[in-house]
Structures are given as structure tokens and as C-alpha cells.
Design a protein around this nucleic acid. Structure first.
Lengths: 199, 199
DNA sequence: AAAATAATTTAACACTGTTAAGCAAAATGA
DNA sequence: TCATTTTGCTTAACAGTGTTAAATTATTTT
């Protein structure tokens, strides 16, 4: 009775196919061009069968969002492990974040775009908290001598994040200045905030 | 033959009505709920007549974007004129920017949201450059002793902007920390960058 | 009053997400 | 093996979107 398994495997396969097809379409034509019928075309089915794998279009986007956070978390962890000094770890992690935003532009837009109602995202999706957690860990480490509160650490995290996200936002929409200049601004900003941690 | 004038006045009036109705709908239901038929309902016409006033939906959004930039520029100018010291002027202008983002949330989302293809926005819409210009003027003033290049000033402007836009982005989507804390982060960041201008 | 022009609406097209009904093939039970 | 049920999938449909063309109504001009 391995046929059940085979069928389950096939079902899982088309689930993956739906996600892959979605990402393909988005990379080719952008998020706003993604439609159920286009996905169906790509996986050689008709639109309604998608609803046997996902409740609705938003569920597909949610799944991709989760995948994005997993990828980002992996990159940031890898970056961290390449250094010993907490300050270096912070810089490496945010540079990984920066690189991810451009290398996986579509993922980043989905994860941090305005159309996402991210208010409850962290509650619904634990994966979204992983990048936050691994960074705040190191912030905690650096600030340990000052016995910082949860809020203090949170504020510092968002200081980093807002600078970096802001810079990424300009560069994703309006590409004005060169990449090198932006990397310089980024590094300067990061080290500035990092210095402010121990002050 | 003043009837021609009266008709022109009426035409201008419904043009304004379309823009007002659009903004009303957006404030009630958000940008994604804005539709041509809803606008038509509100101005008590049918959808196609809107196309006699605007080429398409995007043209309406563009007009509102321009209005937004005019409002923002006015606020920032006012804030600037209340101070003498360049450093104070910078802080006041960015605080005005900050306040605008929350007081006119819908405008801000339209002006700086991801869905806007702002690459050519400055070219198409001169109004979009006014906030940039009045800030860079003051940056220039502060940095004058160092004979900065256009690029130097631009980099500094974007350093300010990315921090502030980043902070606003978090607070517009995810409201996590309190408003007072964010204002504190904002002020600290601004004065930090301002200090870096003369260094 | 008749003809020409302008203002407005209805109808339609090609899309969108989503649901219900129908059909055909495969699996199951007798 | 035949009848029945289940499964997989498609077609059709609904309500919505932006947009355009045709038809209709109202207004002005001759």
C-alpha cells in the first residue's frame, strides 16, 4: 500500500510547485502581476485546484514570507558565526541583512513591504522573530555591563533596523547613489550605533 | 457669456470633488479599497465621467501625491522659519516631516510607499524635490567650512532620510514601542547626524 | 421647432480572487 | 466483473477591478 505514500508525495510536490511558480512569476513580473490563474497556467492546472493546497492567495504569500524569514535567518546566522567580536558580529549580520535585501529583492519586499499587515506577523509567524532574536542576543552581550532593560535593547535594535531598512528602501525604489557609497553610509551608521551601545 | 466661465468653474469643482472623494475613501478604507466606481458613487456620477477629468486611476494618485508634497514642503518650511540656528532648523524640519507622516498617514504612504515607482518621480514631479532642496540648503550651510561636494551633501541628506523614513515605516506598520520613545530615538539620531556634519 | 453639440449612462471587455456544480477517471465493495 | 462511491479536475459562475465604445439623454445653437 505504498500508493498512498506516492500520492501524498505527488501532492506535496504540486504544493511546492505552486510556491515555486509564484516566485518565478514575481521575479519576472513583480508582485502585482501575481494571479491565481497565472500560477495555475505555470503548474499546468486550472485555478481552482490551487485552493486544495492553499486556503487563498494570502496563504501562498504567507508561506513565501515564512520561507523568506528562514532564508534571512540562515544568512544572518552564518554571518555571525564568522566572527568572534560582538561588534564585528553585529556588523556582519546587518551586512548579511543588507545583501539579502538586494539578492532576494522579491522576498524582502514581501517580508517588509507596506502591503503586509505586519502588526500581528510576529505572533502568527514565529520565524519572523528569529532575525530579531539573534541580533538582540549580541546587543545584550555588548550592553551587559550596563544592565539594560528589555526595552533598552529593543530600542537599540530598532535604531539599527530603521537605519538599515530606510537605506534599503531608498535603494530598492529609487536607485540614486552608487552601491559603494551606500555601503559606506551603512557601515558608518552601524558602527556609530554600535559605539553608542557601550556609551 | 459668463456661462462658459460658470461651466468651467463647475468642471473644476468636480475635479476637486474627485480628489476629495478619493482621499475620503482612502482615509476610511485604505488605499487598496480605492476604486473608480467608489469614487463615482461618492461624487454621484458613474465611473466613466472620471476619465474626462483624469486620464486614469494613476493620474488621480499622482495628483494626490503632488498635493502631499506641497503640504509636506509647507510644513517643513514653517518649521524651519521658527529657528535661526541651522542645527535647530534641521531638527525642526525633520520633526515636521515626522509629524506629517503620522498626521497625514495616507498621503505619506502614497508619497513614499513601495507601490510608487519613484525612480522618475523627481523628474516627472518637481514638487517632490522641494523637501529635499530646503533640507540640503541647510546642510550646505552647516558644512560650508569643509567645501563639500554635491555628492557629500546628498549622502548626508540620505543618511537623515533613511533613519527617519525607517523609523516611520516601523511605526506606520507595526506599532510596537511608545510614541515618546520613538521621538527620543528620532531626536538622538538627528542630532547625531548633525554633529557628524561638522566633523 | 430642428439640428448639432455636449453631458452622462449603459454595456461591454479583459482582468482579478473565489466558490459551486459538473464530469470523468480511478478506487472500492459485492 | 459490475455497480457504487470517492477522487481529481474542469467549466461556469459571481462579484469585483480598470477602462473603452456605443447609446442615450440633455442642452445649446441655428
Amino acid at each position: 500500500m505504498g500508493s498512498k505514500d506516492r500520492i501524498l508525495r505527488l501532492k506535496e510536490e504540486t504544493r511546492v510547485n505552486i510556491l515555486d511558480a509564484s516566485l518565478d512569476i514575481v521575479k519576472e513580473e513583480g508582485w502585482q502581476a501575481l494571479s491565481m490563474r497565472k500560477i495555475a497556467d505555470k503548474i499546468e492546472y486550472t485555478a481552482p485546484i490551487i485552493y486544495e493546497y492553499f486556503a487563498n492567495k494570502e496563504a501562498i504569500l504567507m508561506e513565501l514570507t515564512r520561507k523568506g524569514f528562514l532564508l534571512l535567518a540562515r544568512d544572518m546566522k552564518e554571518a555571525k558565526e564568522k566572527h568572534r567580536l560582538p561588534a564585528k558580529q553585529i556588523e556582519a549580520m546587518w551586512l548579511a541583512y543588507w545583501n539579502f535585501a538586494f539578492a532576494q529583492k522579491e522576498f524582502y519586499q514581501l517580508m517588509f513591504g507596506v502591503d503586509v499587515n505586519c502588526c500581528e506577523l510576529a505572533e502568527i509567524m514565529p520565524e519572523a522573530e528569529v532575525p530579531f532574536n539573534i541580533v538582540t542576543e549580541v546587543i545584550q552581550e555588548i550592553m551587559a555591563p550596563q544592565n539594560p532593560s528589555e526595552d533598552d535593547i529593543c530600542v537599540k535594535y530598532y535604531t539599527y533596523w530603521s537605519v538599515i531598512h530606510g537605506l534599503i528602501s531608498i535603494n530598492l525604489t529609487r536607485r540614486t547613489t552608487s552601491d559603494d557609497i551606500n555601503r559606506e553610509i551603512l557601515k558608518t551608521a552601524i558602527s556609530g550605533i554600535t559605539r553608542s551601545l557601550s556609551a
